[in-house]
Amino acid sequence: MKKRKIVLVTGMSGAGKTSAMAVLEDMGYHCIDRFPSFLIDNLVNEIHSGKTVGFDNVALSVTAKDFDIFYQTFKNMDAEVIVLFLDASKEQLLLRYKYNRRNHPLVVAGLANGLEEAIDAEIKEFSAIKSSATIIIDTTFLTAQNLTSRIQRFFSIEGKRTLTLSFISFGYRKGLPRDADLVFDVRFLNNPYWEESLRAQTGNDPAVYSYVINDEKTQEFLKHIESFLDYAFEKYVEESKHLLTIAIGCTGGQHRSVSVVNWLYDHYRKDYTAFKDHRDVVEVKHD
């Protein structure tokens, strides 16, 4: 019998929990926001009874204060419990609140004197929860469409729960992807930027891809990284990890990192559920 799936949606205020819950609801999850923790036994009994239609897949938006009671209770059920943590940089959260002219929940509750103090308090409050999260999505650089796409990938009800690989190319000029589990620097590879005919193209173009991937130095690198990733993926599967984000970086995120991510994606998608994102290709013109 297929296990029930329970998703605990938590994370920083302003990082996209409401949007995530809306996507999950559209996907067929029974979504519950701000369910009172003192009624959790009633909810568990309802889920166990099987009388309520749609309770096979449940998503709950949970605060830091109530997280432990929900997590421990559901872990003792015969269900697959997934913790989705939504995060964003402090700078981005400040911008979102100022742009939307909303009050932070901790300010409204009188637990913080201002927006920055409230965000700092939440960062501290969520530190332990974040470290134990099943899936972390950093929305700092994500559009609403990007967030929707990622949630649909990771939480498909029909999809089998195996290790999902997310390959991301990026440019060091714009900083590391904050949600990366593994980061590899490929700035030592020969750079197509210095070939005038390739400069305006990206690793998505056959000429650039061929230049990068067929180079002897890249071939040696791919041999070593494939050996490491094969071992790492096997161990992550043993630890029941749901999502692994592998980031490949070059100077601007246009040529080398894009080519390598495309190679890795094509190589591993035969055996794993795999996705790829090229974070900086649109915005960056030079590598």
Rank of each mutant, 00 (worst) to 15 (best):
158 E>V: 08
134 T>D: 15
131 S>P: 00
136 I>W: 05
194 W>R: 03
165 L>R: 08
153 R>F: 14
172 Y>V: 04
188 F>Y: 13
179 D>N: 05
138 D>F: 04
155 F>E: 01
174 K>Q: 13
177 P>D: 07
181 D>S: 10
188 F>A: 12
183 V>G: 02
139 T>F: 10
172 Y>C: 00
158 E>Q: 14
134 T>A: 07
154 F>G: 00
156 S>P: 02
175 G>L: 11
166 S>M: 13
153 R>Q: 13
162 T>F: 05
166 S>N: 12
178 R>G: 01
130 K>H: 11
148 T>H: 14
158 E>D: 15
144 A>M: 14
145 Q>M: 12
183 V>R: 09
182 L>T: 06
156 S>F: 03
190 N>I: 08
163 L>T: 06
182 L>Y: 14
139 T>K: 04
190 N>T: 11
188 F>W: 08
176 L>S: 10
167 F>W: 00
143 T>V: 10
161 R>G: 05
158 E>Y: 10
173 R>N: 13
138 D>A: 03
149 S>T: 15
155 F>S: 02
138 D>V: 00
153 R>S: 13
139 T>M: 12
177 P>E: 08
182 L>S: 03
192 P>T: 02
185 D>P: 02
187 R>D: 06
194 W>K: 03
192 P>A: 07
142 L>Q: 12
145 Q>Y: 14
174 K>N: 15
132 S>I: 11
183 V>D: 06
132 S>D: 12
135 I>W: 03
152 Q>P: 01
176 L>P: 01
179 D>R: 03
142 L>I: 04
193 Y>V: 01
163 L>N: 03
178 R>Y: 05
180 A>H: 05
167 F>I: 02
187 R>I: 07
167 F>A: 02
174 K>E: 12
191 N>W: 05
166 S>E: 11
135 I>R: 02
170 F>R: 00
174 K>M: 12
139 T>C: 11
190 N>D: 10
175 G>N: 09
163 L>I: 09
194 W>M: 04
190 N>R: 11
175 G>H: 12
168 I>E: 03
150 R>P: 00
169 S>E: 01
136 I>G: 01
141 F>Y: 11
129 I>P: 04
153 R>Y: 13
191 N>C: 06
163 L>W: 07
165 L>H: 04
160 K>C: 08
157 I>F: 09
191 N>K: 04
